[in-house]
Design a protein around this nucleic acid. Structure first.
Lengths: 344, 344
DNA sequence: ATTAGCACTCGCAATAACTGAGTGCTAACA
DNA sequence: TGTTAGCACTCAGTTATTGCGAGTGCTAAT
């Protein structure tokens, strides 16, 4: 399976060329492009070998070759390297993050924007999600009559809120009281362990209030269990200009993927060993709709713990090394930015 | 400009047929379909007249005719009528609204879903927006260090929230105090009239707190001035199956429209006389990208005041009477549902 | 082992011929 | 005068044919 240097070089040039042009590459073109000083005929022999090994295929008998998925995998694993971005681009990105407002949601939008612009593919960013029941503070805000807003603040200082209807009307004062009671629990107990007995032990509540607390707790738990986190997708139209997506069906597949936030979330949070940059090529993706796409993802962390993920979706003929390099740099910037924002 | 009965009938049948098939309709097909008992030749004469009047065009010399925008406009104004939906569909929709949870955002999503399913076009729903500075209650919630969440509750009982960073750290107790101060203002003063002098008159604040209030007020005003309201769009892929959107460029246009939430908002809230159902056909839309689309919108109200809008985007060859009928019914249901939810 | 040469393959673009749905016009008819 | 049958004509779309060119595999010479 190990390729000799020349084969490796030839394969590399073919892949690079095909990524640029989307055209099958032939032996003559190739002999000009790679400066190994070998003739088309020799290259043809080598290409025939590479085809036998499964790295190349010919769309039809008399055309150039195009790389297979296996070739891309080889390229990604053995050939390409994550580059340092050009200084100008680095400072651009850095400034962008500095200027982006202090709000987390905006940062996510901004990241998606930058990613899709820099790569010319579709960018997806998963906002941090509320996990592990680790909430620090809950604020109940009265809306109208029996409707209240639960604002849940996590240990990391992120907010999520949910509207619920209760069985009784709740005014501002009652809302405050309910908030206080719940926060009292949170100080001492993990929500998971919160039993109804505990609620009933609270002295200074009348039965009506106690009943409300009993209603609120399940809602609270549900939110905290809820897997789905916000998904910011940008640059779907970027893919429209690539020749492989001239077909409306392909675009439909893409739209399906981007809309299925659940699937996207699972896919992006699924760890791949301990790799920082994770690359899934074509049918390496579990999802049927993704078999014509490649997806490169990474994660951002706070305090060494994974908070969320971001990545890029494009054709299998993707500029793997550029995208990887961009993701790698953005990952660092994002980690920096977030830790500035959230570190206690 | 007034057409005689026969021409009107012929035009109607042509439009109906073309809406169904997307194929130019010829005189022979037509003579079979419309039971006026006239021969193809006669119909040809009438069709020639209708073409001269600007209601029909021929894509090429030897093909059937297709309706012009002007024809659709005539159809919408003079021919079609808003029907009552079938009982089964009515009860389906009604039950759907009953089952949808009490949360407003969910209702909007649900509405978009139903609309796109029932019409097979792309549905857009604008969530109610915070307007006129009429907010009833503000809750400041401490997040981490100097970051707080402002939860703004409108008179109608809807919540909007924004994260901001302040110049000093804010803990729960301080957050509560700030909330109280601001709500004190709201009781007596419209936010618009709130001057810095007024803030300084509050006695029980130390300078640090006063400074924070001064920082918060502009943020608050900004949110309340903010025009953009949430946009829920569903069923973009519905349009992919219509032959007129086999072209990737058309789809790009559509994506542009759906993404430009600002534009969408303006378009949908722009009143058209006092019409309940507003129809814009092709280039009647101001937006360049919309010139190949028709859009039918309506609004929902609370207490007689417009809260938001919803509608459907499709090809100019749109099933105008079905969509209008659906919109009309959903409008009623939505108004009912919302007033149940929000009425004081 | 490499390369030049050559016959061969096959997608693609251009051209030509054919088909069929549909038209406009004219003349006949009620 | 309005309606209809008949006929020649138009033109998009399909199929068949051809030629071109980029590219290959094989063989023989270096």
């Amino acid at each position: 399976m190990e390729l000799n240097e020349r084969k490796k070089k030839i394969l590399e040039v073919i892949i690079r060329d095909y990524i640029n042009t989307a055209e099958p590459v032939g032996s003559r073109t190739l002999s000009k492009r790679c400066n190994l000083g070998i003739s088309p005929a020799t290259i043809r022999n080598e290409m025939a070998d590479l085809e036998d090994l499964g790295y190349l295929i010919q769309p039809h008998t008399s055309s150039g070759r195009i790389p297979t998925q296996m070739a891309y995998r080889y390229y990604v694993d053995e050939i390409m390297e994550i580059r340092k971005l050009e200084k100008m681009i680095r400072t651009d990105i850095h400034r962008g993050f500095l200027n982006s407002t202090a709000e987390l949601g905006t940062t996510m939008d901004h990241t998606a924007q930058v990613l899709s612009q820099l790569t010319n593919y579709t960018a997806v960013v998963l906002a941090p999600r509320v996990t592990n029941l680790n909430c620090r503070h809950v604020q109940i805000v009265s809306l109208i009559k029996n409707r209240v807003l639960m604002v849940i603040v996590t240990n990391e200082g992120m907010a999520r809120n949910v509207e619920v209807s209760l069985s009784q009307d709740v005014d501002n004062i009652l809302a405050l009281k309910l908030s206080n009671v719940i926060n009292g629990f949170l100080k001492n107990t993990n929500l998971n362990d919160l039993s109804s007995d505990l609620v009933d032990q609270i002295q200074e509540m009348n039965p009506a209030e106690s009943k409300l607390i009993h209603e609120i707790i399940p809602h609270l738990k549900k939110v905290l269990m809820d897997e789905a986190s916000e998904v910011h997708a940008t640059g779907v139209t970027n893919l429209f200009s690539y020749p492989e997506f001239n077909d409306v069906n392909k675009i439909k597949q893409l739209m399906n993927i981007v809309q299925e936030k659940q699937v996207l979330t699972e896919m992006m949070t699924n760890p791949d060993g301990n790799r920082v940059i994770r690359i899934k090529i074509g049918s390496e993706n579990d999802n049927e709709d993704l078999k014509d796409f490649s997806i490169i993802t990474s994660t951002y962390e706070l305090d060494g713990e994974m908070m969320g993920a971001f990545g890029v979706i494009g054709p299998t003929r993707m500029n793997y090394d550029n995208v990887s390099s961009v993701l790698n740099y953005i990952r660092n910037e994002l980690n920096l930015h977030i830790s500035n924002l959230l570190m206690k």
